[in-house]
Design a protein around this nucleic acid. Structure first.
Length: 553
DNA sequence: TTTGGAATAT
DNA sequence: CATATTCCAA
């Protein structure tokens, strides 16, 4: 459900429909292979001589995705001729002769793989991998148009969360293969297709990929295993990250291809491949970021994540992501703001319930303790200022006195769900000063409620769906607290009784920081006097400081 | 068995 | 620190 497999855009049931050029001078062999391929929904075009095949291929380069060419002692020259002239087409050579030399030659001439005959279904089933490999390997060079859709398709598959388990294995397999493929040939010059590393498909991958397969894993590209070098692994990762970051920053995509050799390179290519392959949640978001910092962060992230296939990656709660989170929370409302729902609402692939839960935990915690206190201290005098309570889209909830979760039977009440913010200007999202990012988004949402206040007067205005509307006492409590605050002096005491302190602080803070914002829902709109009072507090001294007392009650 | 949420680990 | 992971109760 989380997975909106909306658009496996291009080639939904890849590799079905893959067009295979089959060149085999032996009709019966050809027929056999063809039938097997067709059983797998591949489309087979059989040729019995290389000229026909070449001409078909050259006339319509996009007509085929992969070629399977039979080579025997008698036709080897012809077969090689085809091979040499079909460089744009991933070509698999097959033969019943077991001659290392021949195999070597095939590979040397550009064959992507050599398969011993007889060709079993298993051997044929994964030929699509070469297509994918090629599609990606082609890199900058324009690839034959037949490969483009493949690439697009794969990219989209990898980026999207895959819901349908049915495809899951397939996808995983692809991912895996691609990774391997890329890794293996990263070292070679991109220009040369000569020795594309065949990733001997079926055998290798079988079991490992899926071992852990939860949905989330894909997202993170984190699959597998523990290879031999665990330790090294971690180090590499670190290194990789650093490198990637710099590399990316430098903006020189090419740079990483050459530098390293040996183990490093693997990380290197990790970097490279990542960009395309990693379905990291951040990817999407990062694309939207115009913000350099964010971008960088995302990139870095990706690097680590992808490369670290074996490791779970850390979710980077970028402002963007956080914003989604907050929006989701707001949208859901307090009562619904639970990890699973938030997760759904966010629609961010790759995120797991755990990620959200963790973030939620932090979100709540910050709201609860840190912000409020700090604010109080910061703006003590504001206390007696006009309070503007606001009810953003989500009600800002005052939680029960003693803010214990248990205080309210009907369900957990969280402290102000205020909201959200899109970013933390400074650095930390929950940065203390000014405004927390948590709130910012919300502020935007206030507007819609501008008109509500008038009636709101005695009770908090809640959005229609507000879960709290059924809990009047809160409303009253909140209100009184607020009112009290308006009066000078007494409120402190009441505060103790009213756990809404945070809320209030929040409100105050918001009001102060964004005086221009609409606001107050839930409470009586500030009277002109109060407004003036506030202004005076803020520096407009023309208004008598005590004025606020007048609008009290 | 799964989920939310706090506690704890990294 | 920010996140992830673990633990536990519902």
């Amino acid at each position: 459900m989380v997975c909106t497999t909306n658009d496996l855009s291009a080639w939904k049931d890849f590799p079905k429909g893959l067009r295979v050029l089959l060149l085999d001078e032996d009709s019966s062999s050809a027929a056999d292979i063809k039938s097997k391929l067709e059983a797998m929904d591949y489309i087979v075009y059989t040729f019995h001589n290389e000229n026909e095949a070449l001409s078909a291929f050259s006339n319509e380069p996009g007509s085929f995705h992969v070629a399977i060419v039979e080579v025997s002692t008698s036709n080897s020259n012809r077969s090689f001729k085809f091979l040499e002239n079909s460089k744009d087409l991933p070509t698999i050579m097959t033969s019943s002769i077991d001659c290392l030399n021949t195999m070597m030659k095939c590979i040397a001439l550009g064959a992507v793989e050599f398969l011993r005959k007889p060709l079993s279904e298993d051997k044929l089933r994964n030929i699509w991998q070469h297509v994918v490999h090629k599609a990606f390997n082609a890199g900058g060079v324009d690839q034959s148009k037949s490969l483009k859709p493949v690439k697009d398709s794969v990219v989209s598959m990898l980026e999207l969360k895959v819901g349908p388990e049915e495809n899951e294995n397939e996808n995983l397999e692809k991912t895996e293969n691609m990774s391997e493929a890329q890794e293996s040939n990263e070292q070679q010059s991109p220009a040369s297709d000569k020795y594309p590393a065949p990733s001997t498909p079926q055998l290798k991958q079988g079991g490992r990929l899926l071992d852990d397969g939860d949905c989330q894993d894909h997202i993170n590209c984190s699959i597998e295993k523990e290879s031999v070098e665990q330790e090294e692994e971690s180090k590499s990762v670190e290194t990789t990250c650093a490198m990637s970051e710099e590399t990316l920053q430098a903006g020189d995509p090419q740079s990483f291809t050459e530098p390293v050799i040996k183990e490093e390179d693997d990380s290197t290519d990790g970097v490279k491949s990542e960009n395309n392959m990693c379905p990291n949640p951040q990817n999407k978001d990062s694309l939207n970021h115009s913000n350099g910092r964010a971008e960088k962060a995302s990139s870095l992230h990706n690097s680590c994540g992808t490369r670290a296939n074996r490791k779970k990656m850390k979710v980077d709660w970028t402002p963007e992501l956080h914003r989604k989170f907050v929006q989701a929370v707001e949208k859901l409302g307090v009562d619904q703001a639970i990890p699973s729902r938030i997760l759904e609402a966010m629609k961010v692939e790759g995120l797991t319930r755990h990620n959200v839960a963790s973030h939620l935990q932090k979100y709540r915690m910050h709201r609860r303790h840190i912000l409020p206190k700090e604010d109080n201290r910061r703006w003590p005098q504001l206390r007696d200022q006009v309070q503007r309570s606001y009810y953003p889209h989500k009600p800002i909830m005052a939680y029960p006195p003693y803010h214990s979760n248990h205080a309210l039977p009907p369900g957990p009440v969280y402290p102000v769900w205020g909201a959200a913010g899109s970013h933390a200007a400074g650095g930390h999202m929950w940065g203390p000063p000014g405004y927390s990012p948590w709130t910012q988004t919300e502020s935007c949402h206030w507007r819609p409620y501008q008109g509500m206040h008038a009636e709101a007067w005695g009770c908090p205005v809640m959005p229609p769906h507000s879960p709290y509307s059924s809990i009047p006492q809160y409303a009253s409590g909140f209100q009184s607290a607020s009112l009290v605050n308006n009066s000078c002096g007494v409120q402190q005491k009441l505060f103790d009784l009213q756990p809404d302190e945070e809320v209030i602080d929040k409100v105050v803070k918001e009001a102060i920081n964004k005086p221009w914002l609409p606001l107050p829902l839930g409470l009586k709109p500030p009277s002109a006097d109060s407004v003036l009072a506030e202004l005076s507090r803020q520096g407009v001294s023309s208004i008598p400081p005590c004025i606020n007392g007048s609008n009290f009650f």
